[in-house]
Design a protein around this nucleic acid. Sequence first.
DNA 1: TTGTACGCGTTATCAC
DNA 2: GTGATAACGCGTACAA
Lengths: 334, 334
Amino acid sequence: MGMTIRDIAREAGVSTATVSRALRGLPNVDSATRDRVRAVAERLDYVASPAASQLASGRSGGVGVITPFVARWYFANVLSGVERVLQRSDLDLVLFAVGDSDEPHRVPPARRLRRRVEGFLVIALDPDSPDVREVRALDMPVTLIGAHHERTNSVAIDDVSGGRIATQHLINQGHKRIALISGRQLPSPFSPEWDRSRGFTEAMEQAGLVVDPDLIAPGCFTVDGGEAAMAALLAVPEPPTAVFAISDEMAFGAVRALRRQRLQPGTDVAIVGFDGHELSDLLDITTVSQPVVQLGALAAEALLEVLSHPHTATRQIQLPTQLMVRGSSIAARR
Amino acid sequence: MGMTIRDIAREAGVSTATVSRALRGLPNVDSATRDRVRAVAERLDYVASPAASQLASGRSGGVGVITPFVARWYFANVLSGVERVLQRSDLDLVLFAVGDSDEPHRVPPARRLRRRVEGFLVIALDPDSPDVREVRALDMPVTLIGAHHERTNSVAIDDVSGGRIATQHLINQGHKRIALISGRQLPSPFSPEWDRSRGFTEAMEQAGLVVDPDLIAPGCFTVDGGEAAMAALLAVPEPPTAVFAISDEMAFGAVRALRRQRLQPGTDVAIVGFDGHELSDLLDITTVSQPVVQLGALAAEALLEVLSHPHTATRQIQLPTQLMVRGSSIAARR
DNA sequence: TTGTACGCGTTATCAC
DNA sequence: GTGATAACGCGTACAA
């Protein structure tokens, strides 16, 4: 249990320095010596104390993953992509959730993780929020996921384009009164939300259609929120014939609201979601799907790249989205 | 940036020892001194190096969370419960996924995390699998989630009872040919899977019904697997009139298989799932719901308890399940 | 190629 | 209540 590098050195008949070199695969060590040391370490189940090696080397061997949610579909899937890549490196994944409702006396991620990790992965958080700002100010490697920011590595999709494609699809089906189920109440600066909404507006205006303020309802990115939003939209004097929900979970809620009123998605009101949630297929909901797991994986790889080659130029990777047309946006043949 | 405890000590006009004591809130320090030290630390944005602190104290300040999946509904939700509790402690959450397909040269979690964490949380993994065995052999605090094992802390539900309740519900509806969509092909020793199946068998036998081997199909805990299983079940000479899927995701797949064949869940074939997935409501699927987030939260609390009071007696917590009856298991009135 | 010796930043054990 | 100082386990110049 309490094995130290000295125990290995003694057992292998070499110095601690040699043990250190052998175990880390440094070149300047005789291969016979290395094998012997490794065999001893293996036999004694020795692993170098990360704390001691960090103290000596300055490298902490961890990456911090900062996310607003861990259980929601998008975030959980991005996280799994991150995990898969990190698993193959020798870096540990330290998970840090910044609560949605900003609790006052929370320790900000930058302060808490600074000495613990060598770099950060930030999932779908506003790059200009205080927490992320602090993290970026650390001048450690950072890769943003789902958002871009000048002079920072990032992996994201083109949310504006995605919003435009979804809306255009609805327009192509002949709809004119198209509603938007957005995220939060106020126009937040959070880019995915803002960008998808902008894509909606652009497509509408380009088609010469008006964006009726009554037809914009916040859904808080939740199923329940989406349901409430849809209910509100159905209650306006002249209800929409089509709805673009900027997340699939809100689209699910919208479908539920329709069913409550005995309305048929696709036939009575067209619905398009966003994300490519695995169950949108099952629910037959049209959606703009994004490569969620890959987003996380590429971001992790980009971070590893920077960690091993510090002077890599910063890159902003853009991944494609794909419109998955399903029954919810196509009027059933009558 | 490169602040050390000595910088704070100098600035506050005290020794490093006093800084250490003051910052950790140890009792034997004058309150005026403590306030002064804290003010300086705050101003200089000083945080003690976890590595140095671990080396000196022996405490690593992290807990390892071992899980087979990070994106699947059950695991993501348990993880969120864990995170919520750990956030309020001063322990970091180090996430470690043990791949499903056992890759040969993977570093086992015990070796990798031993010196990095002070305790483990193991999510729905077989307590007797090699990886978990090694972890338990570390004689560090461990709390199992979703499984029990002698002499180990754990938080779980009663899966046997859950399986029995689901099956009994189907029996009560008058069904006699009831199928089971289980997890993997072979009878794995993984307890939730095994226990739910056992509950099924018990209920069937108690009702004097036969368990037809043809009516047991593996669904691999995935939507696609559940769909394939249901398709297979519909193809047997005398198909079942009701199906118990031991996970909601597999139940979702079963519903899809039914739809493909123009069959109506509830009317043509009754379906009951297991987990309480948020979308089972939307899909109108009856399920045995379990308090997933709470499972993770309680497990984390139990671990924190053991970490602060090492001689706590080991506890095995059992949380209740709840049958949520919905349309998929009740014949529509014709 | 290998060994020696120092330093990394903090905590704990003593004295005072 | 406070201050010196010796560990803690490892990486790494530097010397051999």
